[in-house]
Design a protein around this nucleic acid. Structure first.
Lengths: 118, 118
DNA sequence: GCACATAGTGTCGAAAAGGATACCATGATG
DNA sequence: CATCATGGTATCCTTTTCGACACTATGTGC
């Protein structure tokens, strides 16, 4: 849904919608949520999201980075080492993420037993 | 993104994601947000969302209804009168909506001058 | 000198979401 | 008799999103 950095979202005149646009995307909120606990490397995130493809993960991370929500740090090593972190802006989303988590835990009955842990 | 009532969302093992699935859709959060203030008729909502087509609005409302977030009341009148309201479940989303609104107001610079009012 | 791991990129195609447009029934109003 | 308003449907088409799969560079270990 979103693709236009938050700077200028034409036609979006509502901040609720604007916020949604940034965290919308198949894997974005989950990535953000996982990053609340700290730095993660590319393949660490990948392992946390069963089913994500490399291309999708790259896309989602790139969009999050373009929107200023996560930072990407590349270490000149071989094999490569790339770390992802929440930016200050990304971290400021914590109340939103937590509100969603809380609501979901209270009102959704997800099939998986690890639902609450995720 | 979402289409499968909240009862069973296969592959969704995370409540943050599950919550997003319910409020995702071009107009859903905005509709929910508008409904926080009270009952609205079909065309009232339509006028509040410049650019929405009848088909899209119907779709979004039907999905919100199927997910148990809004109620739809039809009055046997001519011209027809159909009222939409938040269900208890829908109203329980208020903290999420408010968190998103707050974050958006603080961190997004939307072009329109009516941004904050929306 | 071959495989392995990391962190990607590129191409293609299917599926889903969204938009444009036209149409419908009904009763009131002029 | 024609028009308006309400709350929709139906059909078609375009755009966006997502997934599968193949391919890459490089240094290390066997």
């Amino acid at each position: 849904m979103a693709r236009l950095s938050r700077k200028e979202i034409p036609g979006t005149t509502c901040s609720v919608e604007g916020t949604l646009n940034l965290i919308d995307g198949k894997w974005k909120i989950v990535i953000l949520y996982k990053l609340l606990r700290g730095t993660l490397r590319f393949n660490e995130i990948r392992r946390l999201l069963p089913g994500v493809t490399q291309r999708m993960l790259t896309n989602q991370l790139r969009e999050l980075e373009a929107d200023g929500l996560v930072t990407r740090t590349v270490y000149a090593q071989v094999p490569p080492r790339v770390e992802y972190d929440l930016s200050d802006l990304g971290r400021s989303l914590e109340p939103v993420l937590v509100a969603m988590k809380t609501w979901g835990d209270a009102n959704l009955n997800l099939s998986s037993p690890t639902a609450k842990a995720a």
